[in-house]
Design a protein around this nucleic acid. Structure first.
Lengths: 146, 146
DNA sequence: AGATTATTGTTACAGTTGAAACCAGTTGCA
DNA sequence: TGCAACTGGTTTCAACTGTAACAATAATCT
């Protein structure tokens, strides 16, 4: 006999994960969009540029750090450069590469958005007790190791 | 002084959640696509139709159960009806409503895909020990209650 | 050196998505 | 009854996304 045990979507883990992730991302993305005219991908690029600011990094390094593909990175960078939040210099020694850095305006956005991002995370974690917070990190480490 | 504590994307929870959810969904979606020419949204609609098969349900009820918006449901249904996996009857008494049911072909797909979905879930949970499995469900209940 | 292969980044195209406008039908209520 | 507000569902438009093709440069190999 055929298996017609109904699949209860609302208890199905991959489904619940995607609902949760979408809700969280949507909420954050909308805020960044409205307040800073900044897409999620642009923000991720900025966060990486801020973090690896040293000598400036290339687009493909950004792609590596963000798990975004190079097309997405290229487009996000085009937007950020147009908005003068990022400058693109040529790499001396390798003319294919660009060397990317936040501008002062870029840093200003970053310094506003980064605490906001942390605040979002705190709000999320605030709904869990200490045990579950630790468990969540452990679970993510196992299911999606970095 | 400005807050330039770098945001470590790979430890940032909303980011990690979206990475995990995307990986899981992508893997499943690709399989459904390749083997059954079925999109994720179409599958979700089918799962709901299977579960609430009684007298047939309407598109907006499907939207309610799946947390998808009505446009997405409308499009998924158009595909499913075109593929003869779902039939659309008129509701007697309310001409706006449609009454949706899986066809025999629809049920056949369902009966193949449902166990596959469960298998995906088992694989995911198989990476966790019993404690973490329970914790994950608890966490989802708190962060994204149904 | 010269030919082949790999890498960086952009562009083009097609498919997907979400928001808003829209149409048809129904409900509420003066 | 008649009109306004609402609901179910589709269409439209613009933005976004992924894949593949591409140009330019660099590295490899003989």
């Amino acid at each position: 006999m055929a298996d017609r045990t109904p699949l209860e979507l609302e208890r199905f883990l991959p489904y619940r994960l995607s609902i949760l992730s979408n809700r969280v991302s949507q909420a954050i993305a909308r805020e960044y969009q409205d307040r800073f005219d900044l897409s999620m991908t642009e923000w991720r690029v900025m966060a990486v540029l801020a973090r690896f600011d040293g000598d400036g990094i290339s687009a493909s390094e950004v792609a590596g750090y963000t798990e975004m593909d190079k097309v997405a990175v290229s487009r996000a960078l085009a937007g950020l450069v147009a908005a003068k939040r990022v400058v693109r210099r040529a790499h001396d020694g390798d003319k294919r590469r660009s060397v990317l850095r936040l501008t002062a305006a870029g840093w200003k956005i970053h310094d506003t958005v980064a605490p906001l991002a942390r605040e979002h995370e705190r709000t999320l974690l605030g709904q869990l007790d200490a045990d579950d917070r630790r468990a969540l990190v452990r679970i993510l480490d196992k299911l999606a190791p970095v």
